[in-house]
Design a protein around this nucleic acid. Sequence first.
DNA 1: TGTCTCGCATCAGAAAGATTGATCATTTGA
DNA 2: TCAAATGATCAATCTTTCTGATGCGAGACA
Lengths: 311, 311
Amino acid sequence: MISLRQIRSFVAVVEESSFTSASIREGATQSGISQHIKQLESALGVALFERNGRDVEPTPAGRRYYRECVEVLKKLDAAQQDVAAGKSFGALRVGLMPTFTRSVLPPALERFLATVPGAEISVIEAYSGVLTDMTLKGELDFAVVPAFEGRAGISHRLLARDREMLVRAKRSGDAGMTPVKLSDLRPLNVVLPGVQNTRRRNIETYFSTNGVAVARRLELDAMMGTLQFVAASDWAAILPFIMMVSDLDTGQFDIRPLDDPPFHSEFVLIEPARKTMSAAAALFAAIVKTETERAQSVFLERTNAAHSRET
Amino acid sequence: MISLRQIRSFVAVVEESSFTSASIREGATQSGISQHIKQLESALGVALFERNGRDVEPTPAGRRYYRECVEVLKKLDAAQQDVAAGKSFGALRVGLMPTFTRSVLPPALERFLATVPGAEISVIEAYSGVLTDMTLKGELDFAVVPAFEGRAGISHRLLARDREMLVRAKRSGDAGMTPVKLSDLRPLNVVLPGVQNTRRRNIETYFSTNGVAVARRLELDAMMGTLQFVAASDWAAILPFIMMVSDLDTGQFDIRPLDDPPFHSEFVLIEPARKTMSAAAALFAAIVKTETERAQSVFLERTNAAHSRET
DNA sequence: TGTCTCGCATCAGAAAGATTGATCATTTGA
DNA sequence: TCAAATGATCAATCTTTCTGATGCGAGACA
């Protein structure tokens, strides 16, 4: 007889393409996972994986079974949520990339806690890779990360599309929010996230596609550090608008939208495909989205203002 | 953590309205079932049943959870079937009431075995109550029974609507298939199924609604016996047309449709709600349906023939 | 009203089953 | 060719589950 444990192991192996990683994710041993798969295969009478050396790939039957298993798990999860709903809003764990923790998180948190006074929420700030792994492991209810290539076991939906900005230390006389064409500038000293970061790849693509000259590159995988450093030097950074909203009026930064062409980034909300978002999570996600939109509305106000100053 | 065993137990308890019956159906002990429910309730944090003395009734939450659990089980079953399909047509177990085993079964079986040479099939002949219980227990892939009031855990769909006939021993000079109004006849000696039988209740309703006089009643829960007895006596029986198709030309019986008003019976195909019909079962069900329709087409031929003889 | 019976809850011991850790076999990449 | 990585296998252990006996409460019946 097939058990849920076996199914969970199977799903993990498909998503991780590895027995060993699956065992870690499921908090089990490789041996146990191996046996689960074996039992499943013998119960179904079908091979679920093709083992070619160190390569584990689902057979067509395995792939089909995977799809259905994910649905079953999701339905089961939904059933539990449905019945257990109202019991208490449970503890909510959300992963946000720094872009969001800086500007959007504070007002979102405030609204959420006002709406659900008893809520328990933890927010984990990390880069997209970490957040994606945690989401896959089921350690997060959802996470917000840059749009990515998709990954087995993760479902995602667009949360926001944002304009990338050139951020430098403010010098007197700078007109805020004036669009800037990077290739017109002299070669930049630019602070960038590390190569494993999704944003880094997008930025490099923009640079090379649009003939942007870079004098020097500095890798900093520390957002706070980046901002501090940029504020106190002549280095620049490329950051999404929503990250900088709260800095528009501090006089610390010169913030300008990249233009000609404009550079957009997309952010998606990801969650484990096998789970149903809890009511609490859905509420918080909605609040994050509206707060993001509110922050973005500032963009139009300011660029209009900049425009009218010019004319 | 919730297990499939627990869910199956829960579903069984809801459908049986009893821990004890559920334990029998699941091949477990009452103690075990009780623990499963307790674990489920504590895992969900919700009471699933209201225990009022010897009465077990699902709470609203329990009812909702039941619906979702059935779906989960069904999806899981479908997933297995899907993946395991092609492995072999498996053993098929079908329950038929005597009405169907007499006329429809032989040609249906023949066609089925011709279509799927390697098929293993067993047909169980029994009355509707027995067949329904077996279906609920999962001992049958499906069963054909008289239309009934519905029952938790059983899904059903209409298979055929058939005309009830007055069946008596043939006497010389009888014109076959002439419609007959029972209340015009002198009081009948009639052989009937036992009171627990669904057909019995329907027949009694027809009798009393239409002022049919009955001289004597004889209860026989043996279809073969009923036919033998009717053929050799002046007792009558009320039987569906499809049951008698193969006896139209034997010269043994006088078979006439009840008329003014006509008396119809419906037969449904039932299966466990938590399962997905296997490909083999679906095929056999389809064959049974077409064979039933073929048998019924004889009705029109013969009544037309009878009509033209009269005019 | 008292007693009986039926049915679920509970508990401790027994059976079953799952998990682990060690080890082997195989493949890949240096 | 060797080292590293990965999956398969196996026996021992440990956890979980199940059972059978017993308890308890509610309705049935006299």
